[in-house]
């Protein structure tokens, strides 16, 4: 069993190593200063990490991104639940959501800036706006996924709406909501980064833009590696939470 897992891990590591080697040979053969080798990226990474800049900007980006994600999760959970359980709410919200889902919400960013300014408020709002949709769709699907038999059971037992929500509907919706979260986390990182390209001198996106403007591509890549690591970390955390919270759905992948 363990040897099999080890073999799987080794395969993944091998894949990453091959990709890195390919990049390195590409960087070396191109001879362009704009395509940094891995050692250049590592040096820049160490520099940014040691002078504390990387930590500062990561903190800024994460706090804004996570706040936006939290706001989106809260609103999406409540409205998704309400729409799934009540046809009138569904009629009010669902068509709007379906209509707005395919619209690239970044198109609204100039308007969001007009409303909220260039500070953290507009970026957080933009993250919330973009993350809301997948979270809503999954919360809605989850609250709808309650088997009719379970509903009848709740009625038979004469559970109050609150008891039915707590004991039946929320546990059923949980795996769906975690799937939504797993989709929303990379979106959160993307939107945070893009909004930081513009305006305030804070955050990982700003760091990338600044490095690029100095033709310092090695630094830019160092920051990109951090973004990738954050995305991976967030993803693993959701998977871990799922294994803990939704332990009864064994073997079901997100």
């Amino acid at each position: 069993m363990t040897s099999r897992i080890d073999r799987g891990t080794m395969r993944k590591v091998a894949g990453v190593l091959i990709a890195l080697a390919a990049w390195q040979s590409f960087a070396m053969s191109s001879g362009s200063r704009l395509i940094p080798g891995i050692e250049d990226i590592a040096i820049e990474f160490a520099g940014l990490a040691l002078n504390g800049e990387l930590a500062d900007h990561t903190l800024t980006s994460l706090s804004q991104g996570l706040l936006g994600l939290f706001i989106a999760f809260s609103i999406a959970s409540v409205s998704g639940y309400a729409a799934a359980r009540n046809w009138a709410v569904d009629a009010a919200i669902h068509p709007l959501v379906s209509l707005a889902y395919p619209v690239p919400k970044l198109a609204l960013y100039p308007l969001v800036i007009l409303l909220l300014g260039l500070g953290w408020e507009s970026r957080t709002a933009q993250v919330a706006l973009e993350c809301f949709f997948p979270l809503f769709v999954h919360a809605h699907a989850g609250a709808k996924a309650v088997a009719p038999r379970m509903e009848w059971l709740a009625r038979n037992v004469d559970a109050s709406p609150w008891q039915a929500a707590r004991d039946v509907i929320v546990p059923t919706a949980m795996p769906y909501m975690l799937t939504g979260l797993r989709i929303a986390i990379p979106i959160m990182l993307i939107v945070t980064t893009v909004t930081e390209f513009i305006g305030d001198s804070q955050g990982l996106g700003y760091l990338i833009a600044r490095s690029a403007s100095y033709f310092d591509t090695a630094s830019a890549f160092a920051v990109i590696v951090v973004l990738g690591a954050l995305g991976l970390l967030g993803d693993r955390l959701v998977v871990l939470a799922r294994d803990r919270l939704v332990f009864w759905e064994k073997g079901a992948s997100l």
């Binding site: 038999r149 009848w152 059971l153 009625r155 038979n156 037992v157 004469d158």
Partner: peptide, 10 residues
């Protein structure tokens, strides 16, 4: 309507 006096086994 449903009631606890009538228990359903599915």
């Amino acid at each position: 309507g449903p009631g606890r006096d009538r228990g359903m086994v599915f």
